[in-house]
Design a protein around this nucleic acid. Structure first.
Lengths: 341, 341
DNA sequence: GCCTATGATGGGAACGGTTCCACTGCAACG
DNA sequence: CGTTGCAGTGGAACCGTTCCCATCATAGGC
């Protein structure tokens, strides 16, 4: 066995091997296979197989302008919510014949913009974005250049793009309703710093606005989740130890907060249920901790699929630049022991 | 504002705008910028900025053969272990100037081979593979064509590639040692069906082989984790209810098993600690469940980085086709209440 | 039986870059 | 002062495709 240059066969070599022209081979591997006679099809098939030929997507997308690639920017890949959505996005992409080029920004605006221009340089045909910062400039530029774009979960000001995510006001209302019904009267809403992330702002605003309607009082707490920080026992303990007989409950704005708060409560020796605990985002372990943690589950896969659907619609040829759509999904309440007094 | 064709500027347009040749623009955006005079650099920079130019990676990789892309095949993206490794891989890729094209196979060999040929068609310059089936044919073909390739965690027979993963025998030994030390005598090892996955076989074989050395008896149980199956109470209950006074413990082969088993134990009302429970793979919730679940943590990020390092080494120009390397990491024991009688 | 429609096939120009090579000045050298 | 060398620059071929167009039978219409 001689040492051969490990180079991939090209369409031209297949053509020669099959005694055909490269046009015909191209047709065979494109979607015009039936324009070829049976005989030619057979010759090309066997030649390609013999050579181990596989069309070069790079060359293909260069000429045709179709990279068959969808880009996705994930703010935090270690957040199970993001992964679940990504799973939905990937499935939907595959179903439409696209592949997913996913980048994780680790919540870092610098990485975000770096990845954004990277994805642009691969000429992705659509972009699903779970924004970290507020990169309106870069995003609007992409839209102007004709890349359809969907914002996931978090909106970005001044960018005219479709948005897919949770119905945040409704989620907060459901949480408040559930907690009121279970007899809690004094609430602490715990969130990561809202900064640019619109759903965080939405949720917090709604919390404040509707609290009184359910006959409850409460306040909110911003919890910066630096990786290795000691969990913020102090602020939470202060709330729990405040005098008064009104039953107290904690409402966590997302899965990462639920984790941090649960740790804190365990460290403080708090009995769940007696003190209410509820979180937005369902996590696999919520049913396992003590009496179970009540959650509002997001339909993650559906959200992912919807995002891709938006992209595909905007890729339709007759696409009149329709106004941005906003798709909001209803959460699902999963009641457990942590809100059972 | 007139409706303009939303097309990206090309290198030629930049060249015209800057009054230079496309060669010079190419040099500017390649790594030969310093071969250009200050003046020309300035003109190109401002022209490119004015036009919003961004080189087309597709075209770039076509000529040069450098896609700057690393492919990754993940068997199950909803497994936190996989995600953690992927995070490490992605960071390492970025550090070396590559981007990651990650595909999830959902443990489906059909998807696996589909994704494999897809990645090949994008001419990825390296491949990190967490294999599902045993696609030796396709993999060996890639290697022969010159694509460096690293197998993650699971080996594949008959494929001469580097392997990065946990030191499985050592992990089992550590688990056995810990459980013996804590006084457990009768063990049940619970694993997903080993099938093609080599580490599962390794771990199970080691478990059987070393059990007696630590003065314990035991057996193993294969747990097929179909998504919606009722957790397998029966088999586990049978083990726990077996007569005898020897303290019993369960050893879970990976994170998904730990989750399923923990659910079962809760449903059965088992007291952790009294009955031992230990799992391979550290999960964020293990410290939260009851007295805490003892785990053997894998250095996931390190594994991911090591995988990329292997790829990079094989890309070095003077690469003599060196024999496959096997890199095995030591696990870290995190003792908690579930193994404290 | 001639002209045209039709279907199967091939030639060659793009696509947007990189890169080899040639060309131009100009400074340094003998 | 004629070479040589080198830094700065541009021309043009090429990477592996797609796709427009041309070619050539063969069949069908009159």
């Amino acid at each position: 066995m001689t040492a051969q240059t490990p180079r991939r066969p090209t369409i031209l070599e297949v053509a020669r091997e099959a005694g055909a022209s490269k046009t015909s081979v191209s047709r065979y591997f494109g979607d015009e296979r039936d324009r070829l006679s049976r005989g030619l099809q057979g010759r090309i098939a066997s030649a390609a197989k013999r050579l181990g030929y596989r069309p070069n997507q790079m060359a293909r997308s260069l000429k045709g302008g179709h990279s068959r690639l969808i880009g996705m920017l994930v703010a935090d890949i270690r957040n199970p919510f993001s992964v679940a959505v990504m799973h939905g996005v990937e499935q939907a992409c595959r179903a439409s014949g696209y592949s997913l080029l996913a980048c994780n920004t680790d919540n870092d605006p610098a990485q975000e913009s770096a990845h954004l221009s990277l994805l642009a340089s691969y000429r992705v045909e659509g972009l699903v974005i779970n924004a970290t910062g507020s990169p309106h400039g870069a995003l609007q530029a992409l839209i102007d250049q004709g890349t359809p774009l969907v914002l996931l979960d978090r909106e970005v000001d001044r960018v005219a793009a479709d948005v897919v995510g949770l119905d945040n006001p409704r989620a907060i209302d459901m949480a408040l309703e559930h907690l009121a019904e279970r007899g809690y009267r004094e609430l602490l809403y715990i969130t990561e710093p809202p900064e640019e992330a619109s759903p965080r702002q939405r949720r917090m605003a709604r919390f404040r606005a509707r609290l009184a309607d359910f006959g409850m009082t409460g306040e909110s707490l911003c919890l910066p989740l630096t990786d290795d920080t000691a969990t913020p026992h102090a602020a939470i303990a202060a709330f729990l130890n405040r005098p008064g007989v009104a039953p107290k409950a904690l409402l966590c704005a997302n899965g990462k907060i639920t984790l941090a708060v649960t740790r804190t409560l365990q460290a403080l020796g708090v009995r769940l249920g007696e003190t209410g605990l509820m979180g937005i985002d369902e996590l696999e372990w919520c049913e396992l901790v003590a009496p179970g943690i009540t959650t509002l589950a997001q339909p993650t896969e559906a959200i992912g699929r919807a995002a891709v659907e938006c992209l595909m619609q905007r890729r339709e040829p007759q696409h009149h630049p329709s106004p941005p759509r906003h798709i909001h999904y209803q959460p699902v309440l999963i009641p457990r022991g942590s809100t059972q007094r």
